[in-house]
Computed example of a mutant assay.
Amino acid sequence: MSEKAVEAQPGAGVELSREEIFAAHLGGKLSVETRLPLLSKRDLSIAYTPGVAEVSRAIAEEPGLVDSYTWTKRLVVVVSDGTAVLGLGDVGPRASLPVMEGKSALFKTFGGLDSIPLVLDTTDVDEIIETLVRLRPSFGAVNLEDISAPRCFELEARLIEALDCPVMHDDQHGTAVVVLAALLNAAQVVQREIAGLKVVISGVGAAGVAVAKILLAAGVQDLVLVDSRGIIHHGREDLTAVKTDLAGQSNPQGLTGGLAEALRGADVFVGVSSAQVPEAEIALMSDDAIVFALSNPTPEIHPEIAAKHCRVVATGRSDFPNQINNVLAFPGIFKGALDAAALRITEPMKLAAA
């Protein structure tokens, strides 16, 4: 394997060799460790047979004891079908597994929660739901990950109804929470109230829809959404049901056209698509503009270029300043939900997290 240094993105300050990257992932990033010593026959008799039978009998008689005497209550399954992985797209379940392992490692490190990746070799919503319903006794919460839109909306909504435990599609709501948190802070930097900001969101997939909804709930009044075909507005006949609903809640000025028309005079740009944004279009924004170029691994515009025209610039990457990434939110959201024995992660919980 070549040792040639590769940059995560042109212009980035961090260089990583392929050898270093693959060596770190060799054998996977996860392992299971026992919390009990197994150093003697007595240890074995307590941890396994015959002692464990006493615990199984007790749970059979009183099922609620499973929360106290197994790891279920603190176990999050990270579920993906590999159809929308990072900025790579549909790479399939096997290729998505390194990302899901990483997600589980983040749950443990930043939330103190045990987590296992569960990649499914199906894209059928009914089959995914049936699989998780049947596996429900084994886990305490579900983190949906890297599932393409629009299936992800239906899948999450139906799973919330089907399971009696917290379910959250992190690409939607984890992203939304950290974007709102970042915007609240950026607004303080530019000494503005978010209700008075004109916000443009580029990308109306899973993340874009959730970001739009949480910003509207938080009080943003002038919101414009742009997908690959242009500005979302009532006159378009190619809108999905989700986009049609958002058309009724956004674009109060009735703008049409593309991203350039949306960005003219805008205060905030939120990029949650892989589409690159020319410098000339960012230059159309207002004074003291805010740019969140969150596509990974390649931001919609390089932060050094955006900084020439904007007051606050952030990306989704850890090697640039002002990282806006789900890792800042999802471990705590799930930890809070499980600590509170919540059956659902609600909209007020997401706003409170932000």
Rank of each mutant, 00 (worst) to 15 (best):
P150E: 05
P303V: 03
R136F: 14
S45V: 13
T123M: 03
G265W: 15
E154R: 12
H309E: 07
A23C: 11
R151M: 06
I116A: 15
P150S: 00
I345E: 03
L36I: 03
Q191C: 12
E54C: 14
Q172I: 02
V270E: 02
V270Q: 02
S17F: 09
Q9H: 14
D267M: 00
Q221V: 06
V119L: 10
F139Y: 02
A12R: 12
V77F: 06
Y48L: 07
V178F: 12
A262R: 04
A212D: 09
G265L: 10
I214H: 08
T109L: 15
G51Y: 11
V125Q: 05
V242A: 06
F139E: 06
D81Y: 05
L215N: 07
A280V: 15
E237M: 14
A353G: 06
V313C: 15
V224S: 14
T175P: 10
L284G: 12
I21Q: 07
V179F: 04
H233F: 08
Q276A: 15
I128R: 03
A353F: 08
V167M: 07
L86C: 09
A352N: 02
P10M: 07
E15F: 10
I46H: 04
S31I: 14
C152F: 06
L239P: 01
T72W: 10
G219L: 08
L65E: 00
M100P: 02
E279Y: 14
A283G: 11
G89Q: 02
I324V: 13
T34P: 09
A329Y: 13
M1R: 12
V313R: 13
